[in-house]
């Protein structure tokens, strides 16, 4: 046999093979075809491979490669047909009912409060904020004293405090992280501090003894109330939508001055007044203010040189209103049917 004759025989097999494979109508006839093509005993390809030795030595390499290519192609075609025939056999010869449901799996979910925190973090990250954390059981000094709460003053009555020891509290807000951060790192400071805080509030539809809060703090030279308004309004537009209107109104926190609450125009009634906004047209979103010089001084900073602003917001409030959750306790119950609603 010459190389030319060998190649001609291979090509014939390569051309003929697929048609014969497709002609197999069940697994038995498929086995016959397979044996005829590549069977060890009498397969045509096996015969040809056996004839390789008879070729001139310098042709064997090319012939061998060509034979191998044909072998791989035939094997693939055989396997594909076998799978089709096996599936058809398993289905009793009938086609699949493609209306049947997919094989599902469990999907996980991020808690709705964490989702709000994520979104807030995302927006402030774009503005160069980093994430700071602090302990939940705190020295009273970090929770109150360093934040300019006058000792034994009615301002403390706004924070129903849980105590774990003498001068040791479960932090009533995330603001202690402000002071810890200012003591640890030099300005410029741009941080966001999410975390859990505690109040001695009985569990009811709108109050929880522990809830999440997000604190923000900026301290540097030349930081002004204009920066506070600009950044928080920008946040509101990013968070609630580009056309969101904000307003700032006077408030009081011992650790900021001037202090301001930020409202956004009610998204339900667009400011005309409804039950969601208690007919005011505005919904309170966060408390904010310029960092009180006494706080900078408590952290060992020069309050003439540095100024700053801070804010705090409650992501659970936002989660409740955006998802229409009627009772805050649902967020804590951990009912899988509730959690699963956030999985898809």
């Amino acid at each position: 046999m010459t190389l030319t004759e060998f190649i001609a025989a291979l090509d014939a097999l390569g051309a003929d093979g697929p048609a014969r494979i497709a002609a197999a109508t069940d697994l038995d006839s498929w086995t016959e075809v397979r044996n005829a093509l590549i069977g060890r005993q009498s397969g045509r390809l096996t015969e040809l491979m056996g004839a390789l030795g008879a070729l001139p030595k310098e042709d064997r390499r090319e012939a061998g490669q060509r034979a191998n290519t044909v072998k791989v192609a035939l094997e693939a075609a055989l396997e594909a047909r076998r799978a089709e025939l096996a599936a058809a056999e398993a289905a009793g010869g009938r086609a699949l009912d493609l209306t049947m449901p997919a094989r599902d799996r469990w999907y996980g979910a991020v808690h709705p409060v964490s989702r709000v925190i994520d979104e807030v973090v995302e927006i402030f990250r774009e503005l160069g904020f980093a994430i700071a954390l602090g302990p939940e059981a705190e020295h009273a000094w970090y929770n109150f004293g360093a934040l300019n709460f006058p000792p034994d003053h009615p301002a403390m009555d706004l924070h129903d405090t849980l105590y774990v020891g003498d001068e040791q509290v479960l932090r009533t807000h995330t603001s202690p992280v402000q002071v810890r951060t200012l003591q640890q790192y030099p300005p410029p400071i741009r941080i966001l501090a999410p975390g859990n805080v505690y109040r001695s509030d009985p569990f009811d539809p709108s109050h929880a003894p522990m809830f999440a809060q997000i604190e923000g703090l900026v301290v540097d030279e030349g930081v002004s109330f204009a920066d506070l308004k600009a950044t928080l309004s920008h946040f509101a537009r990013r968070f609630f939508g580009a056309s969101t209107r904000t307003r700032f109104r006077p408030s009081y926190f011992p650790f900021t001055e001037p202090s301001a609450e930020m409202d956004v125009q009610c998204g339900v009634c667009a400011g005309s007044g409804c039950s969601v906004c208690k007919h005011s047209g505005w919904v309170e979103i966060l408390g904010s203010g310029m960092v009180h010089p006494a706080v900078l001084e408590a952290a060992g900073l020069d309050s003439e040189r540095y100024t700053g602003w801070a804010f705090g917001m409650g992501p659970a409030r936002t989660a409740i209103s955006r998802h229409g959750i009627p009772d805050i306790r649902i967020l804590y119950d951990s009912d899988v049917r509730f959690l699963d609603q956030f999985a898809r």
Binding site: G128, F129, P188, I191, A230, P258
Partner: peptide, 23 residues
Amino acid sequence: YDRLPDTLQGARPGTVPDHPLFT
């Protein structure tokens, strides 16, 4: 408060790294 300016300005990057427990 609404009559005070609110122009968003650039800021120097902060010195605080992300807290490793948050990441």
